[in-house]
């Protein structure tokens, strides 16, 4: 069981996008993944219910901190991976989700405010880890990167002291399209997602790839027999 919390004290860096392709990709691999939408705006849960087209996964919507704590505790005992998407401002539900996390992903787009808030979120995770007396690693994920621009290079250098994933996400329309199509990105975006997932596996934040002996129905219903899959850690 692994709990990944996606957090940032700033709105708009791509938390829900990151959550969408994480849960969608894990579900496509046959991993027993549960999503928790702890953002009161309900972007992830709405996308899951109305638009998402891949193999089914359970998505809960709960932004009240006490109920969220009980929900995380309950689903963590049943799922291989729990992904928690949080609201884009400092709030109790996000902090509760950090306390439970095995890893916190902090998306960051190039911008002065984004670098500042990413650093604050890293500090908050460290404070939570200290209060909980457990190791809660965090990693900044550079998002909407235009590699050739001075802005992206400068933002990356400004965030150089922060713990970062090597993988980053480019400024590609495919991520935005996922929000409307409900389908996982393909092409260059799909390759970036795969690279990011590989890095999370190397960090031990995600279980290794599922050895799957059955086919996965992509029509929206996961018909896989749980007895025919094996999660290799």
């Amino acid at each position: 069981m692994a709990i990944i919390t996606i957090a940032s004290s700033k709105g708009g860096p791509g938390k829900t996008t990151l959550a969408q392709f994480l849960v969608g990709s894990l579900a496509a691999e046959g991993v027993n993944v549960v999503a928790i939408d702890a953002d009161p705006t309900g972007g992830l849960s709405r996308w899951t219910a109305r638009l998402y087209e891949g193999p089914a996964f359970v998505c809960h919507h709960e932004a009240e901190d006490a109920r969220l704590a009980h929900l995380i505790h309950r689903v963590a005992q049943e799922a291989d991976v729990v992904v928690v998407d949080t609201a884009g401002f400092g709030n109790r539900a996000a902090t509760v989700a950090m306390t439970a996390a095995d890893g916190v992903l902090i998306p960051m787009v190039p911008g002065e405010g984004d670098v500042t808030e990413a650093a604050r979120t890293v500090e908050l995770v460290a404070g939570v880890a200290s209060a909980a007396r457990r190791d809660i690693p965090s990693r900044v994920v550079l998002n909407r990167v235009r590699a050739s621009t001075a802005l992206s290079k400068h933002a990356a250098s400004e965030a150089a002291a922060l713990p970062k994933l090597d993988a980053s996400l480019s400024d590609l329309v495919a991520y935005g399209e996922m929000g409307f199509s409900g389908r996982m990105p393909a092409g260059k975006a799909g390759a970036e997602v795969a690279t990011l997932m590989s890095e999370l596996r190397a960090l031990g934040w995600l279980p290794r790839r599922v050895v799957n002996t059955s086919s996965v129905n992509t029509s929206g219903v996961n018909t896989m027999d749980v007895n025919t899959k094996e999660v290799v850690r």
């Binding site: 009161p40 009240e64 704590a69 995380i72 505790h73 709030n91 109790r92 996000a94 509760v96 306390t99």
Partner: peptide, 30 residues
Amino acid sequence: RAMPPLSPGEMLRVAGSAAPQQPPAIGATD
């Protein structure tokens, strides 16, 4: 060995001590 998950009470206690000033994600109007 994998760390046992924190209890809900522990999660709330830790969150409250690490960031006591934070507002709830949903307003009191709810």
